[in-house]
Design a binder for these strands. Sequence first.
DNA 1: CTGTTAGCGCGTTCAC
DNA 2: GTGAACGCGCTAACAG
Lengths: 344, 344
Amino acid sequence: MASIKDIAAKANVSTATVSYVLNGTRNVSPKTRERVLKVIEEMQYKPNTIAQSLKTKKTDTIGVIAEDVTVFNTPEIIDGIHDCAERHDLHILLVNLRLHKRIGRSFHAVDRFRDVVLSAVDELVGKQVDGMIYVGVHSRDLSGLVPPKDKPIVYTYCYADNAVSVNYDDERAAYEATQYLAGLGHRRIGVISGLIDSIPSRLRFNGFYQAVMDCGLPFDPGLIKTGDWETASGERLTRELMALPEPPTAILAMNDVMAVGVLRAAQEIGVRVPQDLSVMGFDNREFSDYLTPRLTTMEIPLHELGVQSMMALNRIIRDNGAIEEQAKPLCKLIVRDSTGPAPG
Amino acid sequence: MASIKDIAAKANVSTATVSYVLNGTRNVSPKTRERVLKVIEEMQYKPNTIAQSLKTKKTDTIGVIAEDVTVFNTPEIIDGIHDCAERHDLHILLVNLRLHKRIGRSFHAVDRFRDVVLSAVDELVGKQVDGMIYVGVHSRDLSGLVPPKDKPIVYTYCYADNAVSVNYDDERAAYEATQYLAGLGHRRIGVISGLIDSIPSRLRFNGFYQAVMDCGLPFDPGLIKTGDWETASGERLTRELMALPEPPTAILAMNDVMAVGVLRAAQEIGVRVPQDLSVMGFDNREFSDYLTPRLTTMEIPLHELGVQSMMALNRIIRDNGAIEEQAKPLCKLIVRDSTGPAPG
DNA sequence: CTGTTAGCGCGTTCAC
DNA sequence: GTGAACGCGCTAACAG
């Protein structure tokens, strides 16, 4: 690898001159400049970023701590981060906590992976990243997980006290989903919720409840069932709902995976979707478009989450604060074939 | 940020001693060692990796060039890379080419994104990575795309002349899929291939053909249809196949996305799966387990691809060559509900 | 205005 | 156990 010295020697100038040419930090006479440029070209010289960083104390690199890159939300968020990072000439050092492999889905067992997070942060701090983005796999409170370092950190798809975080508007998404169903004439809407101790479950329920009130629908607690995010629970609870004396005409599952169970149950008990029953999912997972019938669902603005996190971090790094609160990215209703007018 | 000098000063030793304590590079008397360690602890000192790298000329960082992190194969491959990298204390600098967003799926339009790749490589070389892994989104020949640098590079899910690459055994996978169907008594097996100019299409066809021969099945060219990897083509071609005077009793789609189309067509024309028709996909995409019926398919060893790439690169970096050819990772048959004994 | 010299950033490591 | 050179590029201070 050629170094700046080699260039300087070959071009008969000092290293300072080469540096000035490279960075445009000062005027250099056209002909020396040409000469230097030619040598650089010839020798395919690329400055050693490591050395630059040592001097400038900036690495133009941000650390991304992903709880698990194989979880559905993460790749698209990372894509958003890259999308934005690229425009600012920032690089990404990626740490994958492999949370699922390590502790399964006991997301709340924060203590069990605190060490992992700590060493990830140390690693990144040691590598002098300019800032960090923490990408969670499930919206939840991570306060106290990462000890306050001097490096700025932005959380997305999760949050922590006194820290900047970027999240979509869960409550509003559920509100709009419910409103959409009400608009189709449904008055008895069943809900299959996620685990009850989860933030999205609560937020989505709030949105649902608010919409029920605003649309003047009757609220029947018997139509609210608590699942566990998995297909089997969606299937089981749908059977329960449809066995009610007055079954719902629509079911809102709080994720697409449980919606698969709803669809299965409906098929097994001979309920036609969407003629007899409208079904909505949540997440707009890739497979929702491959189901029969194609699933109506709410799309989470993952890419946008990534972009906004990166933008927020960049503002903190560059302008050193001045975090004007950004509007929460919004979910988007994706209408497909699993929903239709209320029967009758 | 405390530096080694601060530690040295506070502990009343030279920076050399601190360094020796930290790295165990030389013996240090127990009591100075204790003193130094205590100061390090107190000041939460973490060595500046940048400075270390400058001196040692090793960054313990490898660059991963992903053509597109949002494509289904990539996250799991990256996870495998991390899995292995972690064990060797290697870090990952991730570049996301965002190929899909840039050039859609004209994978072969290599020229149109050469600049992007070049700047990615330069970026990584500038950051002094110890090596690189290129993660493709579609198995194909990338010879000449990346100009030979001094840095070692390993390709996975694609390949290039004179370069180390890690890929699964496509031909054998198709062979086993076909053999499995033959074992169920199917003698007329339809194939819905991917685009004909694609390597996997050819490899999978070869495997299919070989199995047909080995199992003593009749080979009927009329049962081979060329799709385009998309659902619609799977649907259309299934109609064609089932309209044949002698329709197949099983259809092997070369990816799960087209298999969705097969399932849809079957349902529409009233062919029961698997009673009347067995359907197999390829890839074991997440959604294949959510389809009705649940899809039998071949799983691609993505994680293993990542692990092996990282291992291969590590061997090159450490042992500087000695690339004993590793056995290709194998696909795995995932039997679900869409396949069954041949009718009659 | 153009070009050079030299010190610095932060650890590592060799000679004393 | 220590002093100091060194890796590579940046930049303040200085000279022509």
